[in-house]
Structures are given as structure tokens and as C-alpha cells.
């Protein structure tokens, strides 16, 4: 059929039916065909724990959709507004205590508007010295395909640069609110000095976008606390079991195929609840007994990227 001249308006017209992907964002590549990666001290599994610090505006616009975890009731949706705020006031401190107890390194994905609103948190992050990546302006500032390019450019530049000013960090990582993008997001991120973006869920290892200088970092949605507990309504015990099973499987795969990454995406407003924190502690306790390399997203990417350069050279 492909050799026939088709009417472009026909539902049987397939202009991108060709080798590789149906877009120009990245190349097709099977994980099992790639060169083995080695993490520092020969650890088989790198662990990236990403802590989301978010601001959900009460006057949510919901364009082009309501962000998962956002307001759902008629204005003013005080229950969801305040329960999200709980994460930054209370839940975070339980999460930090647990991470520090088991010596697991977090990376913080921060909405820039939250950083502006909470100098205390910015000071705390600065004193801890952990990596901060930009999680967009706020949870209602979605990047999407119907958005004007100039507006998105301004939004990204404002979000990244103000977070740089506030934290005194280079801010090279990006996670879009709701992990949604427009067709221009990758270009604009690169223009703003971003080195990696964690929005895409199509791989378990980093890979290069075609956009020069920009990497994809894996960050599993399937293993996210909000997805398992909030969306799927699985039990806390099952959440622990799923993380443990993933960890065991990735360790096993790493033994044959080279270094792997376990990514835990955490929301303090959810996992930092009194009845859930013990399950996070169980996960960290078991993880800390595994042969893992606990590191920031940037350190993991750097260790990975250096080896890619060697391979291609």
C-alpha cells in the first residue's frame, strides 16, 4: 500500500510509515542493544529519589486539562488546596527524616512559584545542598500543544532563571507539571540551559534527544507513589512490594546487561502522611541494604553521559 499514491485525506494515508519513529524528537533504539553502563564502585543499580515540591493554585484554570492531583471541586476547593500544601508544611519533614536516616540522596523537583512563596524551604534546600531541578512555574502552568511559542518561552525562562536566582544552583534539570509538553518544549528547554528533562516515560535509561545537548532521564510513572496509591488505589503494602519487585528485577537485569536505574517519584503530600511514612521507611531500609548507588539525577546522568562519549568516540 505504501507504494501507491494515496489521498492525504484518506484514513488509509500513512505518511510516516517508515523505519524508526514517526517523529524527529529522538532515535529508535532498543535498550537491550545498547552498550553496558558501569556505575561508580561497580554498583549495579543507581537510585534516583525525586521529591516533588509543588504549588497547586486555588484558582486553577485547568488549561488544557486539570492537572492530576489538582483542584476537582467548585471554587474554592479548600480540601485539595490545603491537603497539597500539607506536603510542603508537614509531609516533607517526615520524608527528609526517613531519607537522612537511611542515607539516601534526594533530588528536589521544585515549582518556582513555591520557591518564591517559601523562603524557608529555599533556605533549607540550600543548606542541604541537594540538587534542585525545575518543575515548572506551578502545577496549573501546563506546557501543551495549543500554547503560543512565545508564551511558553517566557514561562520556561521565568521558571528556570528565577529558580537559579533563588537557589544559587545551576538548575540543569526539568520536569514539566503533569509531565506534559508542547511541540516546542524540548527546544525551549535547551535554549534555557537545561541539560536533561524527565517528562518522557519511554525508557529505563537516559538517552539523547535530537535536540542538541538535551538528554532524557527516566522517571517511572508506573512506580510513582501518586500513580500506585492515588490513581490505582493499591494498598501501601502493595506499593512497597512493587518497589521491591522492581528493585530485584532491575538488579537481576543489571547483572546481565549493565547498570540500571531505579527511580522513585515521591509526593510529600501523599507519602508523607502519618499512616504512609512507615512504608516509605520500609522501602528505604531495604534499598539501603542493596548494592545501590544513591545519587542525584545530575550525577547519574553525568556518569552515564561520560561513558556514552567514550563509546561513540
Amino acid at each position: 500500500m505504501t507504494d501507491k499514491v494515496m489521498d492525504p485525506n484518506s484514513p488509509l494515508h500513512y505518511p510516516l510509515r517508515q523505519y524508526g519513529m514517526d517523529h524527529d524528537l529522538y532515535n529508535w533504539s532498543m535498550l537491550s542493544n545498547r552498550a553496558k553502563v558501569q556505575w561508580p564502585n561497580n554498583k549495579p543499580l543507581a537510585v534516583w529519589v525525586n521529591i516533588n515540591l509543588e504549588f497547586f493554585p486555588l484558582n486553577q484554570k485547568g488549561v488544557p486539562f486539570k492537572v492530576p492531583g489538582g483542584m476537582t471541586m467548585p471554587y474554592p476547593d479548600l480540601r485539595h488546596y490545603s491537603l497539597r500544601d500539607y506536603g510542603n508544611r508537614v509531609g516533607l519533614f517526615r520524608i527528609l527524616k526517613a531519607l537522612d536516616k537511611f542515607d539516601i540522596t534526594p533530588t528536589f523537583a521544585v515549582n518556582t512559584e513555591l520557591a518564591l512563596r517559601t523562603p524557608y524551604l529555599v533556605q533549607l534546600l540550600k543548606s542541604r545542598g541537594n540538587e534542585v531541578l525545575c518543575h515548572g512555574w506551578n502545577m496549573d502552568s501546563l506546557h501543551h500543544g495549543k500554547m503560543d511559542r512565545a508564551d511558553e518561552s517566557e514561562l520556561i525562562s521565568r521558571s528556570v532563571n528565577q529558580l537559579r536566582d533563588l537557589t544559587d544552583q545551576a538548575i540543569t534539570g526539568w520536569l514539566s507539571p503533569a509531565r506534559n509538553q508542547s511541540q516546542n518544549t524540548l527546544v525551549l528547554l535547551a535554549e534555557n540551559g537545561i541539560h536533561y528533562c524527565a517528562d518522557w516515560v519511554n525508557d529505563d535509561m537516559p538517552y539523547r534527544f535530537k535536540q542538541d545537548g538535551l538528554w532524557a532521564m527516566p522517571l517511572s510513572t508506573e512506580l510513582e507513589d501518586f500513580y500506585i496509591l492515588g490513581n490505582n488505589l493499591h494498598s501501601e503494602a502493595s506499593y512497597v512490594e512493587q518497589i521491591n519487585d522492581a528493585c530485584d528485577f532491575l538488579l537481576q537485569e543489571a547483572a546481565a546487561q549493565g547498570g540500571r536505574i531505579l527511580t522513585l517519584n515521591i509526593h510529600p503530600w501523599l507519602l508523607g502522611q502519618p499512616h504512609r511514612i512507615q512504608y516509605f521507611e520500609q522501602i528505604l531500609s531495604r534499598l539501603s541494604q542493596q548494592p545501590i548507588w544513591s545519587a542525584s539525577a545530575s550525577d547519574i546522568l553525568q556518569a552515564f553521559a561520560v561513558q556514552q562519549a567514550t563509546v561513540t568516540a
Binding site: P64, F65, G145, R179, S182, D199, V201, N202, D203
Partner: peptide, 20 residues
């Protein structure tokens, strides 16, 4: 797809099936 183009979440996880 539920979101306007590009709906990278739904697309991405299906691509994961082939890549990984």
C-alpha cells in the same frame, strides 16, 4: 489521545514497550 498533540505520556509508555 486525551491531551492535545503531543500527548507524550500515553505515547511514551507504549514506546517503552518496544524499546524496553
Amino acid at each position: 489521545w486525551p491531551q492535545p498533540y503531543p500527548a507524550i505520556q500515553g505515547y511514551g509508555i507504549r514506546d517503552y514497550g518496544n524499546r524496553v
